[in-house]
């Protein structure tokens, strides 16, 4: 079977001097992330309060395996694993287990003891990521996050000796349960974008939209791309989904292929999409759920209060894209 061809030996990978240290460190971080997921999988499987122990275990367990061993497995086998991983969420069989929520008294007491020092571990990850990106670019921001997490954990242990490894693991499982399988959405959307590109979807859209955009007119291309991002985000309720489709279909052929700066165009396309998120009831988590949480009478009150922000910010970004591309 072709699925089982192409394994890479981890020992060869880690001992190969030609592979950058940052890649090896990242691989170690992926192994730790995989272990966090597998821990969550096992805890959920043995949790009597979890209504779908098997589904939850499959989802987190397979995710853990792909994170840990993805580099060393044949691509097609990883693909099979990803498909297996998506099945429990599709059938709504990923549930949260028993949440070990800290009591309010405990967090209050700790807040009094630790006070504003709690912001040291909170900020250390971001600071470390930026530090590595700027000062140690050969290792990069992601390795910086890894180092930051270590600093953060050590600080937490120093601030409160109750924070044992078991507490960190229990809490991370609780957090994974809370965010659930939708946390995989950005990754899966990125894969979708890659498959769209491979299948030539972008070329077809480009051919269809070509009559609307005068040849080589990058400014009009940018405007169509940006407004398309806003519109698609409003329709789909998700800027991440929109950017996948729009960049392949419009952004590449009509803006990037004409030589525009991909940094400006790619990044601002996403944030211009966020203006669409501010204006749509499809983004229910952000715009509709708060209405219920705050007992607001008008169902669209949040959106109405965001329109006068979204539109100027959108225009500002389109101008930036045109000037700096």
């Amino acid at each position: 079977m072709r699925i089982f061809e192409g394994f890479i030996n981890p020992v060869t990978f880690f001992s190969n001097p030609e592979i950058a240290t940052s890649a090896k460190l990242l691989e170690i971080m992926f192994i730790i992330m995989g272990l966090v997921c597998i821990h969550s999988a096992i805890r959920n499987l043995t949790d009597k309060e979890n209504k779908s122990p098997v589904g939850s275990c499959i989802f987190w367990g397979v995710l853990g395996i792909v994170l840990m061993f993805g580099r060393f497995l044949p691509s097609a086998l990883s693909g099979v694993l990803i498909v297996i991983m998506t099945l429990p969420p599709i059938f709504k069989r990923v549930k949260a287990g028993r949440a070990e929520v800290p009591s309010e008294e405990y967090t209050k007491k700790k807040a009094e003891q630790i006070g504003l020092k709690i912001f040291i571990p909170a900020f250390s990850i971001g600071v470390s990521a930026i530090f590595f990106a700027l000062v140690v670019p050969s290792l990069g921001a992601l390795v910086g996050v890894g180092v930051g997490v270590v600093i953060s954990a050590v600080t937490l242990i120093a601030l409160n000796h109750d924070n044992k490894p078991k507490v960190f693991l229990g809490d991370s499982r609780r957090m994974l349960d809370v965010i659930g399988p939708l946390c995989m959405l950005p990754m899966l959307l990125a894969s979708l974008g890659a498959v769209f590109t491979a299948a030539g979807v972008g070329d077809v859209i480009a051919e269809l939209v070509a009559p609307l955009i005068p040849d080589g007119n990058m400014t009009i291309g940018i405007i169509v791309y940006a407004l398309g991002m806003v519109l698609f985000t409003m329709i789909m309720g998700n800027a991440f989904a929109a950017i996948t489709v729009m960049t392949v279909g419009i952004g590449y052929p009509f803006v990037l292929a004409l030589g525009a700066d991909p940094v400006v165009i790619g990044m601002l396309a996403l944030t211009v999409g966020f203006c669409g998120t501010l204006m749509t009831p499809m983004a229910a988590n952000f715009n509709i759920v708060p209405v219920a949480m705050l007992d607001i009478k008008d169902k669209y009150a949040v959106i109405k209060n965001q329109l006068a922000i979204a539109v100027p910010v959108m225009l500002f970004q389109i101008i930036l894209m045109i000037i700096f591309s």
């Binding site: 993805g70 044949p74 691509s75 990883s78 693909g79 694993l81 990803i82 894969s191």
Partner: peptide, 8 residues
């Protein structure tokens, strides 16, 4: 499957 796997 290879495309899904390698991109993921």
């Amino acid at each position: 499957l290879s495309a899904i796997g390698s991109s993921f």
